[in-house]
Design a protein around this nucleic acid. Structure first.
Lengths: 341, 341
DNA sequence: GATTAGCACTCAACGAAGAAGAGTGCTAAC
DNA sequence: GTTAGCACTCTTCTTCGTTGAGTGCTAATC
């Protein structure tokens, strides 16, 4: 369904005004704001049309109008001009990423933090799982009387480690033999290609020290499981305290609970990202109990997989700013990571 | 200053009642609750005395009384009976710790989470810095064209690692030589005993590959710096949303900001813990802008150093429960860790 | 001298009633 | 199709009286 030019201007005007003030917008305000050459009465008629079409709603008879979820959707799909970061901001972001390039955890945390600050919404960055990385090296290092450390390294520089129990009198040579067997069997393989059978073959190939081998196997399996997980960093959750729509404590509680609880948050973030920037408005995110939030998310490629980056805020969100910023930050991140792994 | 028995009973009664209901407590309520054999009028006289002494206050003329900060202090110092966990809860806690014994991060997070749940306040666990651990082993592992991984392990099983840049054609033997020099010089030393001079000596002892050595030195210095940091885990921050005193959004914001921001939180936690359980009530924590929170914190020993564990809640806190729980959890944690490192 | 009953008094909390004001929807004129 | 004019609606804010919990004081009682 297409709108004529004047209706578009009015819809946009109401959205911009409402997003800024969080107050219903009246016909006079629309005229004044845009210096339109039509009277308030005409605008009123148009607004009545827009309401009938479902793009606007009225909190109560004879209040101004506010955009409906459908109204935002129309704006986002058909009218929105993305607003992106300034040159200086982009440079700052690049510096932040480069300065932390040695540690993914640092990168995603700092970038998320940047995004939260740039948009004033809650933000997240997801780093893809490492299942496509290649197994590089395994080592077993005795550290204390009864303990040894199993360390595994991937080609992309990820380190995983786990303690295991070993007999106190174990010879270092034994541990080395075991490690060698693992390295020979797994070296160069992608983590997601390592099967249980591979591991069993290693076990069978060695004659002695079965008990220790089992411990190592256990550790390796634990690491492989961990490598499947996508790391996530969240920032700016407290930004939502500034939004007037969440002055209601009950709503606030629900939303903070989601932002604090890893699992809930992951559930909320869209699985597929079709366009450059995916925007989910209000109930389009079907989470039980919460209708009042929107998500803007974009993807970025690294390590042959897809990471995600986005912001979470109220429905009354500056989508133009959020979409542009999320998109740009994702691109910058992708670009710098490309040179790295 | 000492109180007679009846005043104590009345003070305690008011504290317990107020902590539970968050409403000022009247004289009738005190009589009823405790089935005291005196009349409300008598209690009123006593309450007037207690107010004069500074232990109670009145929100406004002719409201009930609420405990003053001094009143809580007196109660905590002179009357409080700590209330601890049940056998079942302690067993659960032990299981939680044992199940995660292989990773400190896991332990402190899970224990903090347990504590938050057990008390319904925000909780934290601080793991001591690792400066007393001993350097065990350093390794340099090439991982990509231009990169190598410097891995250091301590006797207590801590792993630190950092990527460095290396020339693409570097021989593994060179890296091994460098690593050996480090191991020889630093092996067995406590991290806090490793000086800049030690590092410089290593640099001087090697003739070739100065550039790579500098990179490794940089990495080692970075790790040493990191080892000085105390790890902290926080849980249950959302519990404060349930406290009626924080229904005011501005106060809530301030407090959440502290709980979310690592640095602020560390500042808030008492440096010295003299008694088994240190309790700081209201303004006794001098943080600017916030007078309304109390902290209950205890220490535990591990790795030859002191970790901290505690809860943060409103002044209107169940100190008896909090103190007992914090103390017990700290003891259990200390005991299990003792068998480990 | 300590305790208690009785009673006037205080003050927050609640709610009803009225005034103000923003904004609409409709009608009739342009 | 557009606009001016006006009655109407509904929230918000303020005021003002009512209610009720709880005190503090006085005088009587143990």
């Amino acid at each position: 369904m297409s709108l004529d030019e004047r209706k578009k201007i009015i819809l946009e005007s109401i959205i911009k005004d409402y997003v800024e003030t969080a107050e219903p917008v009246g016909s006079r305000a629309v005229v004044k704001k845009h210096g339109l050459n039509i009277s308030a009465a005409t605008v009123r008629n148009e607004m009545a049309d827009l309401e009938e079409m479902g793009y606007l709603e009225q909190p109560y008879t004879s209040a101004g109008r506010i955009p409906s979820q459908l109204g935002y959707r129309y704006y986002v799909d058909c009218m929105m001009q993305k607003e992106t970061l300034s040159e200086e901001e982009i440079e700052l972001l690049q510096k932040i990423i480069r300065d932390n390039i040695h540690e993914w955890n640092e990168i995603i945390e700092k970038v998320s933090s940047f995004l939260a600050q740039a948009t004033s919404y809650a933000s997240f960055v997801i780093f893809p799982s490492l299942t496509l990385s290649k197994f590089k090296y395994l080592q077993i290092l005795p550290i204390e009387d009864h303990k040894a450390l199993v360390i595994a390294v991937t080609d992309s520089g990820l380190i995983m480690h786990r303690k295991i129990e070993v007999p106190p009198n174990i010879a270092e040579g034994d541990l080395e033999t075991i490690a060698k067997a693992f390295n020979k069997a797994l070296g160069g393989k992608r983590l997601n290609e390592i099967t249980r059978t591979d591991l069993m073959l290693i076990r069978d190939s060695l004659k002695r020290r079965k008990k220790i081998i089992d411990r190592v196997l256990e550790a390796v399996e634990y690491m492989l499981a961990g490598s499947k997980e996508e790391r996530i960093a969240i920032s700016g959750t407290l930004n939502i305290l500034n939004e007037p729509e969440f002055k209601d404590l009950e709503k606030l509680k629900k939303i903070l609970a989601i932002l604090e609880e890893d699992v809930l948050l992951r559930n909320l973030i869209p699985e597929d990202i079709k366009k450059e920037v995916e925007i989910r408005i209000g109930t389009e995110n079907n989470i039980e109990g919460i209708k009042e939030i929107s998500i803007v998310v974009s993807g970025y490629h690294t390590l042959g997989q897809k990471g995600k980056i986005g912001v979470i805020g109220p429905i009354r969100m500056e989508y133009w700013k959020a979409a542009g910023t999320v998109e740009t930050v994702g691109k910058v991140l992708e670009q710098i990571l490309k040179g790295q792994f």
